[in-house]
Design a protein around this nucleic acid. Structure first.
Length: 856
RNA sequence: GCCCGGGUGGCGGAAUGGCAGACGCGAUGGACUCAAAAUCCAUUGUCCGAAAGGGCGUGCGGGUUCGAGUCCCGCCCCGGGCACCA
């Protein structure tokens, strides 16, 4: 092996990477050997009756888009490292893998090529599986799941039916987001802030359609409260909190003037939601959303034309136009029209004008507001534009009207705290108290009540696509919507389908699929042609992984209770809201319908979001066409070096820039592994005969360095600081190489063994090979090393001596030196005496054993 | 506009309020070689100095402290999220 000279040119045409180094060992052969070993020996297959304590590591299952790219490599390297590390720590580690295999790309490919999405998808899965395995990532492949597998579809459909039975799934007509590119509706979560589709980038339009929803809003409070106890990145939790958007306030009724019922017409009241009931005395007008059902009713003939024009414009405008044209500070762009009607302020009995304006949204609260320009910036802008009065109900800070505004200009709405004014019986109170009193008054008078509102909407799950899990219901002429009996699941899409360029789902026109019979009466019925959002599949796959063999239910709750929650979940920040919120909802809902353990409320105890790979300033992705294929690296430097690169380059949570320098850094990783190889295989050039017997001072220093390394690396693994763990290992190697000139056999052997154990989770192949040569057994079944405190403790430390905060001397001292000795030693330093020049210290700060600071 | 991150050598990055720049990449010089590759050794923030040594340095301006990359206040720049949610 010493003579092995691998001239590894990059064989693939177009690959960027070219290795010109001569390697110390046959990387490709070694890595292949161990990959096969792990697979045939089932090293990482575990069962629920394993006596070791369970530990569940999960990396988000991928959409199978073909061979792995660098983002996958990075992702699965972190996950695999944890699996191997936890195993060495003595856990039974559940490490499953699967594929999120429903989705639009396969259907688009079918439209393009005529190939059935299943054929296409299975081919992509084979490629991805192959390249993930080539990284040396280990999984319990017996547990593999694929969303599109009939044995998975069956349970996804059963879950749907149970949710339907529990009232957590329902069908409703609603204004929905329609993506013309994807030819389907989207959930709110799948529409980006600029009003485009997160998948296709097309501008999403509003349509009224009958759709299926999951009642996620029933869980809004629990989804919010549950976040507090999760060991997740704060930023992800904040994003979920904002998305749920809980706000407390009150609803109250504003009687429409002249519509008290005395003229025979039914009485008319306008219900509004506000978070600031304390400001009601400052209401100077009210506003309806353009889509509000009362608009027609209240608009006077004189105003009808203007109101109609506004509504037409609002309806035509997409959300982007509506926000971009009128967003921002400019008051004049707030578009609205007077209805001609007035509403009565229940607090004052005063009538104020009622407007229609597009800055009020039908989808939130009641779609109508009381407007208080003095204490709301949007109302202020609108009031300015329409010449409406302002009544302050909170005393603004001194000088607010002169310089309280932006850039010290004139102040506008004041939304802060302060003393209530102009508010009758609320005057003199603070805002919080006034808010409470106002609500109490509303409830006592029967004019309103406390109300909590959420930004969160129910989850729209139906998709007008073919390549998804069919929704298992039929529509019967007499019985309406009827669930398919559970015994008849799964409902599978037919194979003999034709994909049209229009993008229309073939299910909608396939007579054999469409025509069926009603499970209740046996009469003619029509199948539901919508399929489920693929986020439904990914909302429970981690539960199926626990018990993928279950044939009578999706999974055994007891087995799930054994493994769940996932101890460490790893994935991209892009799922901060979508997948992670849906999966949390599913965990709660499945518990409540009796499928999952009821007490298991949260699926993922810890979450880590790794950084993405950027190239030329943008995310490396297939759609941007800037992928760097790992294959060229795997065939040359090998998986270990590529893994090491991702671990060493920086903190795992940070983004990585793929630059012209990157290949050199990867070469450096390969170089390091070569050095480890030479140490482990006793091939260090010029290595002398090894001593035995008594250990010298230098030998003990190596022992100490080895044990300190155990402490450092162990701590770094715990805090996800792999870059510093790698750096620490490199330091030891840098120390060991010169030490090999005159090594003590036992000391060197222990040092190298320790190094291999610490590196094993990071670079599993090369460490396994060296360990086998040295000891004959499998390093990955060995225990994680533990340091000897007597050896890992520092023997001498460098004490810094400062004069006025500037370092003037460094002294070697024992780590347990006391204050008096440290001070005496510092003051006796010739260099310190020199700088002091006879001046007596004014004060001496002593922090043994690290520092003495002499102040003059 | 609001809410989070972040700004440290040529580059990626280290640093429980206590030696700024660990480790690596790149660069420079040297050993080995006919030569190259690989390998090994040394140097590498910046300025002054032959050297010893010293000055200056963590986006900018203040502050707290014996001592600040780290804590506080006010800015600037970069990245991300949210954005008429009443």
């Amino acid at each position: 092996m010493r003579q092995a000279r691998l001239r590894a040119d990059c064989a693939r045409p177009g690959a960027r990477y070219h290795l010109s180094m001569v390697r110390a060992y046959d990387v490709v052969a070694v890595e292949k050997k161990w990959r096969e070993r792990w697979a045939t020996e089932g090293t990482y297959e575990v069962d629920a009756d394993d006596p070791r304590p369970p530990w569940y590591v999960l990396t988000m299952y991928p959409y199978p888009s073909g061979p792995a790219h660098m983002g996958h490599v990075r992702n699965y390297t972190f996950g695999d490292l944890l699996v191997r590390h936890r195993t060495m720590l003595g856990h039974a580690v559940l490490s499953p893998f699967g594929f999120d295999s429903f989705g639009l790309p396969a259907e688009n490919a079918a439209i393009r090529t005529g190939m059935h999405p299943r054929t296409f998808t299975d081919a992509r899965i084979a490629e991805l599986k192959e390249s993930i395995t080539a990284l040396g990532a280990v999984y319990d492949w017996r547990r593999e799941v694929r969303s599109h597998d009939p044995s998975y579809i069956r349970w996804t459909q059963l879950i749907f039916l149970r949710l339907l039975a529990a009232g957590l799934a329902y069908r409703a007509n609603a204004p929905v987001n329609w993506c013309p590119g994807c030819q389907t509706v989207l959930a709110n979560e799948q529409v980006l802030a600029d009003g485009t589709c997160e998948r296709s980038g097309d501008v999403v339009v509003k349509r009224d359609l009958e759709q299926w929803f999951f009642r996620i809003t029933d869980y809004a409070d629990e989804l919010l409260a549950g976040l507090d106890d999760l060991d997740w990145p704060e930023r992800v939790k904040t994003m979920q909190r904002n998305w749920i958007g809980r706000s407390e306030g009150a609803e109250m009724d504003l009687p429409v003037e002249g519509r008290d019922g005395s003229d025979g017409r039914p009485p008319l009241v306008l219900r509004v939601f506000t978070t600031r009931p304390d400001t009601a005395f400052g209401m100077t007008y009210a506003v309806l959303a353009p889509e509000h059902p009362l608009v027609d009713e209240v608009t006077t003939p004189a105003q009808r034309a203007a109101v109609e024009e506004l509504r037409a414009r609002a309806a035509a405008a997409s959300d982007i136009e509506r926000t971009s044209e009128s967003g921002g500070a400019s008051a004049l762009e707030k578009r609205g029209a007077f209805t001609g009607a007035s509403v009565v302020n229940p607090f004052t009995g005063t009538a104020v004008p009622l407007y229609v304006a597009d800055y009020v949204l039908m989808g939130y609260g009641t779609g109508a507001i009381m407007a208080v320009p003095a204490e709301d910036a949007r109302d202020w802008d609108f009031a300015q534009a329409h010449g409406l009065p302002v009544i302050r109900t909170v005393r603004p800070p001194e000088g607010w009207d002169e310089h309280g505004g932006p850039d010290g200009g004139p102040g506008g709405a004041y939304t802060g705290t302060g003393e209530k004014i102009n508010s009758a019986w609320l005057d003199g109170l603070d805002v919080v108290t006034a808010k409470r009193r106002a609500i109490e008054w509303l409830e006592a008078e029967g004019k309103g009540s406390r109300k909590v509102n959420y930004r969160l909407r129910d989850w729209l799950v139906s998709r007008q696509r073919f390549w998804g899990c069919p929704i298992p219901v039929v529509t019967c002429e007499t019985h309406g919507i009827v669930p398919v009996p559970e015994s008849e699941l799964p409902v599978l899409a037919p194979d003999d389908v034709e994909f049209r360029p229009t993008g229309e789902s073939p299910l909608a026109t396939h007579a054999g699929f469409l025509n069926t019979t009603c499970p209740i009466c046996g009469g003619a019925a029509r199948r539901e042609t919508d399929t489920m959002d693929t986020f439904v599949d990914s909302s429970w796959y981690f539960l199926r992984f626990c018990d993928p063999w279950s044939t009578d239910r999706p999974f055994d709750p007891d087995v799930v209770a054994h493994w769940m929650p996932v101890d460490q979940y790893i994935g991209g920040i892009e799922h901060a809201i979508l997948h992670l919120l849906y999966a949390r909802f599913f965990m709660k809902a499945l518990g409540d319908v009796g499928l999952a353990p009821a007490e298991l409320r949260e699926p993922f105890a810890r979450l880590f979001t790794q950084g993405m790979i950027r190239m030329d300033g943008s995310k490396m992705s297939k759609s941007r066409g800037n992928l760097v294929a790992p294959s060229a690296y795997l065939a040359t430097v090998g998986a270990d070096a590529l893994r090491l690169f991702h671990l060493a380059v920086g903190p795992p949570a940070d983004d990585v820039d793929w630059t012209a320098q990157t290949d050199s850094i990867i070469d450096g990783c390969a170089r390091f592994l070569d050095r480890v190889w030479r140490l482990g295989a006793d091939e260090v050039d010029g290595e002398a005969a090894r001593r035995t017997g008594a250990e010298t001072e230098d030998d003990v220093a190596i022992r100490r360095a080895t044990h300190r390394l155990i402490d450092r690396v162990t701590r770094d693994y715990e805090r996800w600081s792999y870059n510093t763990a790698v750096a620490a290992c490199r330091e030891l190697v840098n120390t060991l190489v010169p030490y090999c000139a005159d090594p003590h056999a036992g000391v060197l052997g222990d040092a190298v063994d320790t190094l291999l154990l610490l590196l094993a989770p990071m670079v599993p192949h090369v460490t396994a090979e060296l360990w086998e040569r040295r000891h004959g057994d499998d390093i990955h079944l060995r225990a994680w090393p533990v340091s000897d405190p007597a050896l890992s403790a520092e023997q001498v430390v460098t004490m810094v001596v400062q004069v006025n905060g500037k370092v003037r001397d460094r002294l070697d001292v024992p780590p347990d030196i006391d204050e008096a000795a440290a001070e005496a030693l510092a003051l006796a330093s010739p260099r310190v005496e020199d700088v002091l020049g006879g001046v007596a210290p004014r004060r001496v700060i002593v922090k043994p054993p690290k520092l003495v600071n002499v102040v003059v």
